[in-house]
């Protein structure tokens, strides 16, 4: 019980501390590759602090969703960070980080965002919300199938146990099941966090934007929560993917040395993955909206092949 609490606290502090840095790294890498100076690595921190010092506005006739959706998104992202084996694979007492539980916590945040998009009653909000939900619906089978494929060799659907078994059996990293499933998961992470080529995180003014369209009507501290909450989702999903792909040095228990090693290792892995993601994004253009389902269908095929392979290989 005590160990679980320690691990949850470490996960949360780690995620809260590294997330703005991660976003800062991604923006800086992108800026440098495009020949700009960029705002620097701590700029996201300054943005959030600025937003929290501003008053949010409220239109007459708006419902409590306006106030509560940003808070719920933030809370669901925090729960996500607590449950995903970012630093340690210790099974948590009472709340095992089980695949379906994690996915539905993620979906709760998605629903909060989509409801917020509809709340204001503007065309932009509805448009973003509708597109976001279509992508979510199409991503869902890939998420479940790809982790299902990884869970077959591990014999469990608890994420921590899957990471642990992959860390202990390094031969499982380089086989078709693992590679196909990780490839499918990367597409999922890109679609769920609204990165290129699915959505452009750097724009406010495109008719095809998805994430920005939903949060267009929020301001001040509401926007602060929304931004931070969405960034945390990126950290959590990216963290899960890197720990599944390269599970070295993830702590197995709650001892301080193991946790410190885990924090250091995950930091390195996350920063590297984020820099890579940002570098690749420079060379990508946004896909046409109705080409995105084809990308997602492709990732579903990868995940399905991976499940089939898992029955043949093991």
């Amino acid at each position: 019980m005590i160990d679980s609490v320690v691990v949850i606290v470490v996960h949360l502090v780690f995620a809260l501390a590294i997330t703005p840095v991660l976003i800062g790294v991604m923006r800086t890498v992108r800026a440098r590759l495009e020949g700009r100076v960029g705002g620097g690595i701590v700029q996201p921190w300054r943005d959030v602090i600025k937003l929290f010092a501003k008053e949010p506005l409220r239109a007459p006739g708006s419902s409590p969703v306006l106030t509560w959706a940003p808070l719920l998104l933030m809370a669901s992202s925090l729960v996500l960070c607590a449950l995903i084996p970012l630093v340690s694979t210790l099974p948590l007492a009472g709340v095992p980080g089980e695949l379906f539980v994690v996915v539905s916590v993620l979906l709760l945040g998605t629903v909060a965002l989509a409801m917020l998009g509809l709340e204001a009653g503007t065309a932009f909000g509805g448009m973003g919300s509708s597109r976001h939900m279509v992508f979510t619906a199409l991503v869902e089978p890939t998420v479940l199938l790809s982790i299902y494929a990884l869970s077959v060799p591990a014999g469990t659907s608890a994420l921590a146990a899957i990471v642990r078994s992959r860390r202990d059996d390094l031969s499982s990293l380089l086989n078709p099941v693992s590679i196909l499933a990780i490839a499918a998961l990367i597409v999922v992470v890109i679609a769920e966090t609204g990165r290129l080529p699915v959505d452009n995180p750097a724009t406010h003014l495109e008719l095809t934007m998805v994430h920005e369209a939903m949060i267009l009507e929020s301001g001040g501290r509401d926007l602060g929560w929304l931004e931070f909450g969405s960034w945390l989702r990126l950290t959590a999903l990216l963290g899960l993917t890197v720990n599944l792909a390269v599970p070295w040095a993830v702590a197995g228990d709650a001892s301080w040395t193991a946790l410190l090693v885990g924090v250091a290792a995950t930091t390195v892995k996350l920063v590297a993955a984020a820099a890579l993601l940002a570098a690749v994004e420079v060379f990508l253009a946004k896909l046409r909206l109705f080409r995105v389902p084809e990308l997602l269908a492709g990732s579903f095929v990868l995940a399905f092949l991976s499940v089939s392979a898992s029955y043949l290989v093991f």
Partner: peptide, 16 residues
Amino acid sequence: MGVVALTIGLGLLTFV
């Protein structure tokens, strides 16, 4: 599994 997952996803959209 795929069918159930797609059903959950589309159900989410429907009820949102």
